[in-house]
Nucleic acid binder design. Structure first.
Lengths: 192, 192
DNA sequence: CGAAAATTTGACATGACTCAACTGGAGTGG
DNA sequence: CCACTCCAGTTGAGTCATGTCAAATTTTCG
């Protein structure tokens, strides 16, 4: 199962099997039951995790008490409050499993030690972080200039599994629209 | 004038006057006349620059030929196509001076050499980059959940100079609304 | 001064929201 | 295992924010 993590590393850096096994010792397997929280606002454990199996959503709670989903993650993606992780501040996000989910978690302190021992690993995370930045830039641009129906179409096209495994209500929040609107968008797309 | 750059460094790292002077040699002063481009799509010089004086906007050109402003920068901010810079790809952005602007430019190659000599400098840029990411996250969230009038109010509150020195048409594009809408928003805010 | 661009204003269209009611399926407890 | 509850999803009606198109006005700049 942890093969998935090794494969993810190999996509961006080179890493021997032996080194991987050593790194893996600092990653803690954990299961998150459906509808339970992996992270909640105010928590201070600066942990990030790699998803081996399952689905997860990350969201903020607005002042008005609205859940604002900002990430939908499936297998082979990382989750965590990057803001809190980088700034070493308490978490602002909530992260909830949408299915029974298996993850490999690592905390920031261990990670920094691993950076010293395996500089490639720091490279891996820097690339991951850069990609996250670029992805956010593109989402921002799309949110300002691309209509919701098209954003939904592209999301599903790039990641069909999200359409099948994530409840509509959370996809709507991720796209920044109401569930009613997304329901109508789906109806409209189905007709064509 | 280059004092501004030194001050910016000191906000995040410690750096001796002597080291700064050495670093400064790799930064090239340049003036960009109002309404001329510092960067245009397809250019390959992976350069980023620090603004000493003036105003600048960065934008993408959509398929439909619409200019989509994604950054408005005044003194003491960095400009450049971060995406192209990080990926070493040709630029996708345009960057234009809105006033006669004085910058200090550094190219990626020199910067990497400076990283080796002054590790603090790499730290400075990593922090800068992280902040850019966080800022983009917040803008994304706001674009999805905060109405345009409120986004404008907050922008002006945080940076009053933008309201005075940047033409309405570019602020509107930055906020993702039409100039007509922003004009009405201004009228509405003025009445209160 | 005069042309070109930016800004404002009006009229109308449209996409998305809110509120409300209804439907159907998943999960729960007896 | 069934009946019940609850909640996600759907649908309809009315409203509002923002967009589009067009024209008038103001500002900028050669």
């Amino acid at each position: 199962m942890s093969r998935l993590l090794y494969q993810s590393f190999l996509q961006h850096i080179s890493l021997s099997e032996e080194d991987f096994q050593h790194i893996l010792r600092h990653f803690h397997p954990r299961t998150i039951k459906k509808k339970t929280l992996f992270l909640r606002e105010g928590m201070t454990t600066t942990t990030i995790a790699f998803i081996l199996k399952g689905t997860v959503r990350a969201y903020y709670l607005s002042d008005a008490g609205i859940e604002q989903v900002n990430q939908l993650a499936l297998e082979q993606h990382w989750i965590g409050d990057l803001y809190a992780f980088l700034k070493s501040e308490p978490a602002r996000q909530y992260i909830e499993a949408l299915e029974d989910t298996e993850i490999l978690a690592v905390n920031g302190h261990d990670l920094e030690q691993l950076y010293d021992a395996y500089p490639q690993l720091e490279r891996y995370f820097r690339i991951l972080f850069q990609n996250a930045y670029i992805h956010t830039q593109q989402r921002l641009n799309a949110s300002l200039h691309v209509p919701a129906i098209e954003r939904y179409r592209q999301l599903i096209e790039r990641n069909p599994a999200i359409g099948l495994r994530v409840p509509l209500i959370h996809i709507a929040s991720y796209l920044g629209i109401t569930p009613e609107s997304l329901s109508r968008i789906r109806k409209q797309l189905a007709q064509v």
